[in-house]
Design a protein around this nucleic acid. Structure first.
Length: 863
RNA sequence: GCCCGUGUGGCGGAACUGGUAGACGCGACGGACUCAAAAUCCGUUUUCCGCGAGGAAGUGGGGGUUCGAGUCCCUCCACGGGCACCA
């Protein structure tokens, strides 16, 4: 019994493909183009299973589309700037560049063992000057176009390490290294004007019909267009007003307080004279800048003592608080609170003893019901009412439904000069400044005389200095003894470079364009971009559903407006894959164990000390829980095809998948089973023998049925791959292999079908298990490489089954199935159903009231 | 807290646009081959009742729409992703 020798086979076929004249992606080739792209990896060290899943999916699509006659582009690169390289520099005393380039070399070699059809001649790394010089040019182009500006914004500040912290580096309000409580600090930073494209980024989502609906919904909510009003509350004892934004001006008569963000200018002014308020603001700032942290923290407020006059009723006024949950970045940084109709306001009102005034009630209530509704809102165990209804206790609004009351309130506010209707967006401009070393330097110079000036293009790139140290916290570019000192491009006098680098999301917002002409001395050539863009199929993790994809959509539009492109949308098709999970294990002490440190059979014990192991939940693979499986080991033990096959089996690719050792073994068994089916599964007809006439009409014999099963598999698997239903494609290959293996005789017909069947399997599995497919193709004496063969076509003559099984229900419960010729008419189906013995029994002699017939599917008899 | 998902046998999952729930795989059990084991092959496998024919229940919980609901609606629960300086 022969085992499939993947070690020999995989290396051999990988070399053969790379040497194939047809391998490269040809600019301007007459075939229709197809650009397949997976989100490029961060070079963290070694590839992980998430990469294997991502690149397997992409490779299936690339190879499948190639077989379908497309000129496929499938490139790979490295998202190579970022925080982990600097952390490694601090911990391991290795230069970020060295660390990154070594990781790339390791990961590239690992990926090559997967047998991916990738155009390595187009490889790029964002940390290399030949990439980031072009990015600096784009930054200057955006600046000329008015899409770049500077403003102040808040960062997390570690007062001990004297450094800016990423949100990830703030743990429970403390710096991750120093342990010091963080503060918020305001810095002057660079911004991209993404909000200029609010409308377009929102409305164009409707055109992205090959994106998952969930991603479009998430982006829609993120952009967050909402209609409402700006309302001015006159501050008593002062000359100015407090401006708040609300989507519910109809609830103004229910207002019982106003609240300012801790970062609001009025807060700052008041805190300057009120030490207690200043202390409260410091307390709020200790939360850091993360919205999740701010929104989940306990709601706290501070009464400033100011009162604001009600905009619709000058006789009323409300207290002005500073509250920790009011965001400075949304609306005006101030709100009014209507506790009866907003849960957060209600919690706040109860905590600080503020009034709860119901101003909306369900329509159509009796006076008693209305009284009970109002009374209930005053009790402490009720929730706010945010449903539709009619205005009450609201003067001129009384009786109006919510939408009409909003309109009416806005009219009145505008007429009296106390506010105006407005559209508010949640999306904020994109802050791209980072106070770090390992990123693209921002090509600007600060001059005391001339201000902030762009570096002239002929002086680009502004390269990162090599000789930097990480022995003290803060930005190494700032510490560097000489790097930042330069001359002013305006006056020639002494000036300093901007020491900020760009957010790494900038790097990933245009790399897909760079792949179209990776060696150009401009960001990309117009010709190549016009030919290859947009990306036809983009594939990556759902965790990028908002930021990366939105930034790339913005970037493409900005490039269009700078004259680089005609298109607006970078990714015509998007597929988001799920995470890879694994069981977790803990030893007797509660310490995490790796899967290899646990026995697999019977009572699970540690292979280290033989003591019992607690098997925990199936969770996302992560180093911290040690539930990771190294792809390199899997590929070494089972081969790339087996790893790829298991990745595609079982779990739909957009969902989480659980990695199991038994699953990979099952895939390995199937690889060998297929190879045996081909090499020792019985007589195969010689190549090129025509289809025996005896098989055309015969659908019932084993050979005829197997022929039809093969055509059915051909018809369905292509469709499955188009729709990313890889698990179903895998199941169909299993079924076909089972059918073929069940053919026991060696008649001429069976030998013919067997040959046709295994050859078809080779073609059908080629995108998924390319090495094995190639090996089968060669074994069968196929010409050239299967890599260059077109996708098979099903013959319609063999797809129709003739009869169909129809379910018969009585009162919706299945009672029988009947066989009928396909497309039998309703009367025939009804008659056959009523004639059925089991149906008669359940009718108990009664006359059916109604009979529902769905052709070719079901008959439901209702009594 | 807010936004978006997911929930089906012992397990991963299948079920096209509301029409036979459990395809395919894993595991388990029984058998064949073998001195034995591995590998391989054959069979059984949602649960409950029944010797059997057959019947009943069943897609996270509760409610609803429908001749018919895993699929649509309401509500609750659990888990996952994102929340703008992780990538």
């Amino acid at each position: 019994m022969s085992r499939y020798n993947f070690k020999d086979s995989e290396a051999r076929w990988q070399a053969a493909w790379a040497a194939a004249p047809s391998y490269a992606a040809q600019d301007g080739d007459p075939r229709p183009k197809y650009y397949v792209l997976e989100m490029f990896p961060y070079p963290s060290g070694r590839i992980h299973m998430g990469h294997v899943r991502n690149y397997t999916i992409g490779d299936v699509i690339a190879r499948y589309k190639r077989a379908r006659g497309f000129n496929v582009l499938h490139p790979m690169g490295w998202d190579a700037f970022g925080l982990p390289a600097e952390n490694a520099a601090m911990e391991k005393k290795v230069h970020p560049r060295t660390w990154t380039l070594e990781n790339i070399a390791t990961m590239r070699a690992q990926m090559k063992t997967m047998g991916l059809f990738i155009h390595w001649d187009r490889e790029l790394a964002t940390c290399l000057p030949d990439y980031y010089v072009e990015q600096q040019k784009l930054f200057l182009a955006f600046h000329r176009q008015g899409l770049v500006y500077r403003k102040k914004s808040w960062v997390n500040w570690d007062p001990v390490d004297m450094t800016v912290l990423a949100n990830e580096q703030v743990i429970d309000g403390r710096g991750w290294r120093s342990g010091a409580p963080v503060e918020r600090r305001e810095l002057s930073q660079w911004f991209f004007k993404i909000t200029q494209y609010n409308d377009e980024l929102l409305s164009a989502l409707d055109t992205l019909d090959r994106w998952p609906e969930k991603v479009r919904t998430m982006q829609r909510n993120w952009i967050g267009r909402s209609e409402g009003a700006r309302v001015f509350w006159k501050l008593q004892g002062r000359d100015d007003s407090l401006e708040v934004f609300t989507t519910r001006p109809d609830t103004l008569f229910g207002a019982s307080f106003c609240a300012l963000s801790p970062g609001h200018p009025l807060t700052k002014e008041l805190a300057a004279k009120d030490p207690a308020l200043a202390a409260f603001v410091r307390q709020c700032e200790a939360l850091g800048t993360s919205e999740a942290t701010i929104e989940t923290a306990e709601k706290l407020g501070y009464d400033t003592g100011l009162r604001a006059q009600h905009p619709l009723d000058a006789t009323q006024s409300v207290p002005v608080y500073v509250a920790n949950f009011v965001l400075m970045d949304y609306g005006t940084g101030a709100i009014f609170g209507c506790p009866a109709h907003d849960q957060r306001d209600l919690d706040f009102a109860r905590k600080y003893g503020l009034a709860v005034i119901p101003v909306v009630a369900p329509a159509g209530q009796s006076p008693e019901e209305r009284a009970a509704f109002v009374a209930k809102l005053a009790t402490s165990d009720t929730t706010a009412f945010d449903g539709d209804g009619e205005a009450i206790n609201s003067g001129f609004l009384d009786g109006l439904p919510v939408a009409a009351a909003i309109r009416s309130a806005i009219e009145r506010l505008e007429a009296e000069g106390h506010g105006q209707g407005t559209v508010q967006w949640r999306l904020r401009d994109w802050g791209v400044s980072r106070q770090r070393y390992w990123g693209t330097p921002i090509p600007f110079v600060h001059c005391a005389k001339c201000g902030v000036l762009p570096v002239p293009e002929d002086q680009l790139p502004v390269e990162l200095p090599e000789d930097v140290t990480f022995d003290r916290p803060g930005n190494p570019l700032d510490h560097h003894p000489t790097w930042k000192h330069t001359s002013c491009p305006g006056c020639g006098g002494a000036a300093t470079r901007d020491t900020d680098t760009m957010d790494t999301f900038v790097d990933s917002s245009w790399y897909f364009l760079r792949f179209t002409s990776p060696h150009a001395t401009e960001p990309f050539t117009r010709k190549a971009a016009d030919y290859w863009m947009a990306v036809d199929q983009y594939i990556g993790g759902i965790e990028h559903a908002i930021l990366h994809l939105l930034y790339s959509r913005f970037f493409t539009r900005a490039l269009r407006d700078c004259g680089y492109l005609d298109i607006a949308e970078p990714f015509a098709g998007l597929f988001t894959q799920g995470m890879i999970c694994h069981e977790t294990y803990r030893d007797a002490e509660g310490q995490w164990l790796t899967p290899q440190e646990v026995t697999r059979e019977g009572d699970r014990v540690s292979t280290l000390d033989g003591r019992p192991v607690t098997v925990g939940r199936v969770e996302k693979m992560s180093k911290s829980k040690k539930n990771v499986v190294d792809p390199e080991r899997i590929i070494a033990v089972y081969g790339a095809d087996t790893a790829r096959w298991f990745m595609l089996s079982d779990s739909p690719p957009d969902r989480e998948m659980e990695w199991t050792e038994s699953g990979i073994e099952g895939a390995w068994r199937f690889v060998n089973r297929l190879w045996r089916l081909v090499s020792e599964g019985g007589a195969l007809a010689p190549a090129g023998q025509p289809l025996p006439d005896s098989l055309v009409a015969d659908g019932a014999s084993p050979a005829g049925a197997a022929l039809r099963a093969t055509h059915s598999a051909i018809a369905h698997i292509g469709e499955d791959l188009e729709r990313f239903h890889f698990n179903k494609a895998v199941a169909r290959v299993h079924e076909l292999a089972n059918t073929l293996a069940a053919l026991k005789d060696d008649t001429a017909e069976i030998a013919w079908v067997r040959r046709f069947g295994v050859e078809s399997i080779a073609r059908l599995i080629a995108p998924m298990m390319p090495h094995l497919a190639e090996e089968i193709w060669a074994y069968l004496g196929g010409e050239g490489l299967l890599f260059d063969q077109p996708w098979p076509q099903a013959d319609a003559r063999f797809l129709d089954q003739g009869t169909v099984k129809i379910a018969v229900q009585v009162n919706g419960k299945l009672r029988a199935t009947i066989d009928l010729p396909r497309d039998s008419d309703r009367a025939a189906a009804e008659a056959a159903a009523l004639d059925n013995e089991s149906v008669q029994r359940f009718l108990e002699g009664k006359v059916p009231r109604k009979v529902i017939v769905v052709p070719n599917r079901i008959v439901n008899v209702v009594v």
